[in-house]
Nucleic acid binder design. Structure first.
Length: 559
RNA sequence: GUGCCUGUAGCUCAACUGGAUAGAGCACCAGCCUUCUAAGCUGGGGGUUGUGGGUUCGAUUCCCGCCGGGCACGCCA
């Protein structure tokens, strides 16, 4: 595979470097992929960097390095170009090598053991059970799930976790809103709760509650409604169960599964919130003012101190959040990743400050954050405001129903997290055939079709045994090279927690395949050539399947 | 106003973390199906990378100043 080839070439250059400039560290050697084919398969800019240090002409240095390069079976040619680039060209055999690497590893091709089984908790979605999931949650679900899969592929032991804010003021708002509906109130009436939720779904919940229907089920405890609009506790329980159930169904439809759900309410019932507060007080990081308890977050880089316990005795939202993150640390997660909307970025300082204040030797940068920007939804040429309280809404369920699960997931994950996202629902619907996901899936379906038509009954074993030397055309070599890049794509994407790179890679691989498919015929008369080509597309299919699976997108055999 | 993020083709986005002539997809123009799926392929037009400086062999990338956009600055979450 390519990482193997790359490290081999790096080693060759390091040898040469040791001869030409013994003082310089081998770490100077980097290899990159030239954008243009005429610049070879790999390119090394080290001579230009050395030129400053050695105060010599870079092309001269490059010439000496090339002369000092040990011989290698994989290296076909190397030349000096431009300001002093050393361009390396591989022997076809080196590129053909990747086929056996892919087929040998199968679904695990591209995986590594870098994480060494280290436990990592990835927290995402974590929507309050106060309404259905919307597009922003969809972006987070697609992103968080793909990041989890990436880390998993690199040998980390990943736990996907969902944190429910099922205690606190917003839940009370929810209960009040449902109660108001149960009493026949309208959101426009004067008695409607000030911060109440106005959406139509509130009326549905109220109706089911009064009708004595059962809700919850599955992972959520079952709750039955009753015809009593005055029992706010019962209403609260019913509404939370109802909305958690709805969210579960949406996530299921989206193909996202969590390993663990953590309830904020449990932090109170287990006394963890109290413990955290006591620890902060004991550490001398708090003070009383205006009837409230404050945390000196300014000691940890915040621009002002924050209230922990309000004058009414209840805690502000970030206190249980700190307690929650203490549990992550105490559950053995030395690495924690939180996927959040960038609108919550001010919580980062507070949570981290709180973790410092409890004095458990938790590192300053704990947890890690991946922030994503908001999704702007366009519908009918107009922006749809996403506001739960106003009730105007584009739900994740709408998108799945209208655009399709695969397209929605691929689309939402194919932009880097910190770029703003415009999701035009009409466009995604009307032009769904132009969606990039179909392009990738189509490549997969085409390969399946050719393999079927070949009646070769090819398996990973037989493909791996094929003689690949007939694969020498420019397009075949390009395809082989592209296949070899996959492990590196996963490596970088997992380090940067940037799954969009996988989406782009898949598009490129699919493009390379479609070009090849149109230029050359796989099922040719020459049996050796046919066999080699079948093995090649068999390999492409494996990598497409691996990449799509990582993004939670299906790979249909027929389209 | 302060902090974080952001500005790349008409539109939506990339660019291997400092590399060679900044790339894809839509959209537009011209071609390709009696042959393994045309949801495809081939070619073409389209750019002062918001802007002005700086750092150096070399900048979309790093630093500084402006301009525009988003988000956050609650005893809401």
């Amino acid at each position: 595979m390519s990482t193997e080839i790359k490290s081999h070439l790096t080693e060759l250059l390091a040898h040469a470097l040791a001869k030409v400039a013994p003082q310089q560290p081998a770490s100077l050697i980097t290899l990159e992929r030239p954008k243009q084919a005429q610049h070879g398969d790999f390119s090394c800019p080290v001579a230009m960097q050395l030129s400053r240090i050695l105060k010599r002409n870079p092309r001269e240095i490059a010439a000496e390095l090339v002369a000092a390069l040990p011989p290698s079976d994989w290296l076909a040619q190397c030349e000096i170009a431009g300001a002093g680039f050393i361009n390396l060209r591989l022997h076809p055999a080196a590129k053909q090598h990747v086929v056996r690497a892919v087929l040998g590893a199968g679904p695990r091709f591209g995986h590594s053991v870098r994480g060494q089984g280290q436990p990592v908790v990835v927290e995402f979605v974590s929507a309050n059970p106060t309404g259905p999931l919307h597009v922003g949650h969809g972006r987070q679900a697609a992103l968080g799930d793909a990041i989890s899969a990436l880390l998993d592929s690199q040998g980390f032991q990943v736990v996907r976790e969902f944190y429910y804010n099922d205690a606190g003021a917003q839940i009370e708002n929810l209960a009040l809103s449902v109660q108001a509906r149960a009493k026949g109130m309208d959101p426009d009436s004067l008695q409607w709760p000030a911060d109440g939720y106005r959406g139509e779904y509130i009326r549905d919940i109220a109706a089911d509650y009064l009708g004595g229907k059962a809700t919850g089920g599955g992972r959520v405890a079952e709750v039955t409604g009753k015809n009593d609009p005055d029992d706010r506790d019962a209403i609260r329980l019913f509404a939370v169960a109802y909305l958690r159930r709805e969210q579960d169904m949406d996530l299921l439809a989206f193909g996202v599964r969590f390993d663990n759900y953590y309830l904020e309410s449990s932090l109170y019932t287990e006394g963890r919130v109290e413990q955290v507060v006591n620890a902060m007080v004991a550490a001398g990081k708090t003070y009383e003012k205006d009837g409230a308890l404050w945390l000196k977050t300014t000691d940890f880089g915040d621009d002002k101190d924050r209230v922990m316990r309000k004058s009414d005795g209840s805690y502000t939202y970030f206190v249980p959040d700190v307690a929650y993150h203490v549990t992550k640390w105490e559950r053995g997660f030395r690495r924690a990743i939180n996927v959040q909307g960038s609108d919550h970025h001010s919580t980062i300082t507070r949570v981290r400050a709180g973790l410092q204040a409890v004095g458990k030797n938790i590192p300053q940068g704990y947890p890690d954050y991946v922030l994503h920007k908001m999704v702007t939804v366009m519908k009918g040429g107009e922006e749809v405001r996403i506001s739960k309280r106003a009730g105007s809404y584009v739900t994740l369920r709408d998108l799945i129903d209208e655009v399709g699960r695969d397209a929605t997931r691929f689309f939402l994950v194919s932009r880097k997290a910190d770029s703003e996202f415009t999701f035009d629902v009409d466009l995604a619907k009307s032009q769904s055939e132009d969606n990039p996901v179909y392009y990738v899936q189509y490549a997969h379906a085409r390969i399946c079709s050719v393999l079927e038509a070949s009646q070769s009954g090819m398996t990973a074993e037989t493909a791996g045994a094929a003689d690949l030397t007939p694969l020498t055309s420019a397009r075949e070599l390009a395809l082989l090279q592209r296949l070899g890049e996959y492990p590196e794509v996963l490596d970088i994407a997992s380090r940067e927690m940037a799954p969009h790179q996988v989406a782009f890679y898949l598009r490129e691989l699919a493009g390379e395949f479609h070009s090849y498919y149109n230029a050359e015929r796989v099922l040719v008369d020459d049996p050796a050539l046919k066999r080699a080509r079948l093995a090649l597309i068999f390999t492409v299919r494996q990598v497409l399947v691996n990449g799509l699976a990582l993004l939670g997108v299906g790979a249909p055999e027929k389209m």
